[in-house]
Amino acid sequence: MAPVGTGRCDRLAQGCHQRSGFTQDTSHYCEASAALRPGQGFFRPESRPSRDLGVLLARQLGLAAPLRVLDLMTGCGIRALRYGQESPAALVWANDADPDRQPLLQANLAPLADRPGLELRCTALTAQQLLAGCLQRQERFELVDLDAFGCPTALLPLALEAVAFGGVLYVASTDGRSPTGHDRSAAVRTLGAAARAHPASWELALRLQLGVIARTAWAMGRGLQPLFNFSEGRTFRTAARILRRPLAGEERQLGLLAHCHSCGEQQVQSLLRLRQWQVCCEPGAALAVSGPLWIGPLQDPATLAAILAATAPEDPSLCRAAARLLSSLAADAGLPARCWPMAELGRRLGGGPPPLQALLSDLQGQGWEACASGVMPGQFRTDAPWALVLERAGALNR
């Protein structure tokens, strides 16, 4: 969709398809179709890949039904503006709890007021107030974008009520200490889970976040399907389709993940089949157990393939960083849930690790699942025993 605007914003928008970044006077920012003023609030140009994926997801949702988008914590409005200009949205609701930001928000979203077939709402409510009103009116949306500052757990019950059946909750958390094992007490309070130090820390955080969403959805009688999960180490983002009821066996995807810091082995157990942990090295070795968390797939290959197929390489809604991220996620469904850095492999071998692709091919040739992680660069996942991984990696180094 072409951006709509007048005057200076319209002229600025003409160059936004080709680049992203601040204009010469630094008061305006361009990204894809959007030209706006970020103002003095919190804004990260580096988060563009997450906004790109949100727009592409919105386009896919708009193919099946009229698309209503709720941007709960919109900030300067860039996500709402791009949803309105780059997807077939019939409704975009941009909300920010700070009433002082309303003049900036309304000015930035002014181009949407003239877009045919689009209803635009701008409000200054707390997320709790807005969501409670939606619950009273039974108003739901195909896409609820909850870009939270900190941990969003307290908002999840109301946010899930606002998602239409088959719609998507796109949630972000900037709480990096709790789910990566650096603040265990906070993890118990905010996630209802144990979080221990783990070599695949970003993935651990995403699985803990998915676990909270799953438990909240199940308590409401609903199911969920993860569509994509990713992080750059600072913000942890999950897009999950919310289903009318859980799929058969969905509860098996909640479990515990154990890591032995002594030998490096990892073990995964579903809560439905919880049993004694296996002894992986010396009997006195302690396991660092995290969970409950999501042990199922992190990405839905079908959804990601559909997004890729519908997006041209020169699409202005997809920057290069987002294209690389999308391709990485599409190549890794997130199974099995045992993931290691190549650096740890090299350290345990006493030298550099073998080439990643050579190791993966070797393990696959022996019948094991093995692939590169799409969540963290330089990591791999496999269901092969860790001792065998070390043995094969050592053989490849010889």
Results as ranks from 00 to 15, higher is better:
residue 205 A to R: 05
residue 29 Y to L: 07
residue 136 Q to C: 05
residue 107 A to V: 00
residue 236 F to C: 08
residue 327 S to T: 09
residue 38 P to F: 00
residue 284 G to E: 15
residue 342 M to D: 12
residue 212 V to S: 13
residue 240 A to P: 03
residue 290 S to L: 11
residue 396 L to E: 05
residue 271 L to Y: 03
residue 354 P to H: 06
residue 288 A to D: 07
residue 220 M to N: 09
residue 82 R to L: 04
residue 231 S to D: 06
residue 264 G to V: 08
residue 216 T to R: 02
residue 127 A to P: 01
residue 36 L to E: 03
residue 398 R to A: 12
residue 128 Q to M: 14
residue 63 L to F: 08
residue 191 L to F: 11
residue 377 P to C: 11
residue 152 P to L: 13
residue 393 A to H: 08
residue 218 W to L: 00
residue 7 G to F: 10
residue 242 I to S: 02
residue 319 C to P: 07
residue 266 Q to P: 08
residue 50 S to H: 14
residue 254 L to C: 00
residue 4 V to S: 15
residue 366 Q to V: 02
residue 397 N to E: 13
residue 363 L to G: 11
residue 26 T to S: 14
residue 311 T to R: 10
residue 141 F to Y: 13
residue 248 A to C: 09
residue 383 D to W: 10
residue 198 H to V: 04
residue 72 L to C: 10
residue 135 L to R: 14
residue 325 L to P: 01
residue 127 A to N: 03
residue 103 P to T: 13
residue 337 A to Q: 08
residue 242 I to H: 02
residue 342 M to Y: 14
residue 85 Q to D: 06
residue 202 W to Y: 13
residue 20 S to E: 13
residue 279 V to P: 03
residue 335 L to C: 07
residue 163 V to N: 01
residue 389 V to H: 12
residue 317 S to H: 01
residue 122 C to V: 12
residue 248 A to W: 02
residue 319 C to I: 10
residue 303 T to N: 06
residue 394 G to Q: 03
residue 345 L to H: 01
residue 384 A to W: 06
residue 252 R to V: 02
residue 398 R to C: 09
residue 191 L to D: 02
residue 68 R to C: 06
residue 77 G to H: 05
residue 173 S to V: 06
residue 193 A to L: 01
residue 315 D to Y: 05
residue 126 T to Q: 09
residue 297 P to I: 01
residue 39 G to T: 05
residue 322 A to G: 02
residue 286 A to D: 08
residue 381 R to G: 02
residue 191 L to E: 01
residue 286 A to L: 12
residue 273 R to H: 10
residue 257 L to Y: 07
residue 150 G to Y: 03
residue 155 L to M: 15
residue 358 A to D: 12
residue 64 A to S: 14
residue 159 A to V: 05
residue 317 S to Y: 00
residue 135 L to H: 07
residue 233 G to E: 11
residue 168 V to I: 07
residue 392 R to N: 06
residue 36 L to G: 05
residue 257 L to M: 13
residue 362 D to T: 10
